[in-house]
Amino acid sequence: MTTSSNSAVRELISFQIGAQEFCVDIMSVREIRGWTPATPLPRTPVFVRGVINLRGAVLPIVDLGSRLGLQMTEPTERHVIIVTRIEDQLVGLLVDAVCDIITVRDDQIQSTPDVASDLVQQFVKGILSMEGRMISLIYLERVLPDREAEAA
């Protein structure tokens, strides 16, 4: 039961990809775990790194850097998978490192500037500024490719 007041407070988890900082709502995050090698899937966009075994469930891993049009990640043991719930599915996001848990009011989130590229416009819901850092709020629902796209 959420309220739609402008000044609602929410908690976000922020993380790093390359030099940039991003965040997602903490309510969407199920767990954070270290990188384990994924089994690649055939005929899949490059940003889907494959699937891993999450306690018996098959979890797809999205290379978020690649998805956002930044560089492909060369994963090492220090890399991190953020397990998120997107609608009714669990999806792992491969990122460089988790930074922080931050608390913001909704009215602190600014809309994405027009100068941003289409890719950024597509995946960034809004931006916020924290102690001089700029953090982009990720549009989780758009991270996975369309479910039907490849079915035919």
Partner: peptide, 24 residues
């Protein structure tokens, strides 16, 4: 193991399984 549960159907692949080494 279903691929659709958390991802979607992949052409040519019926499903997944988990092997003894824990990999899919």
């Amino acid at each position: 193991k279903s691929l659709e549960a958390n991802y979607r159907q992949v052409e040519g692949i019926a499903a997944a399984t988990i092997l003894g080494d824990g990999r899919v």
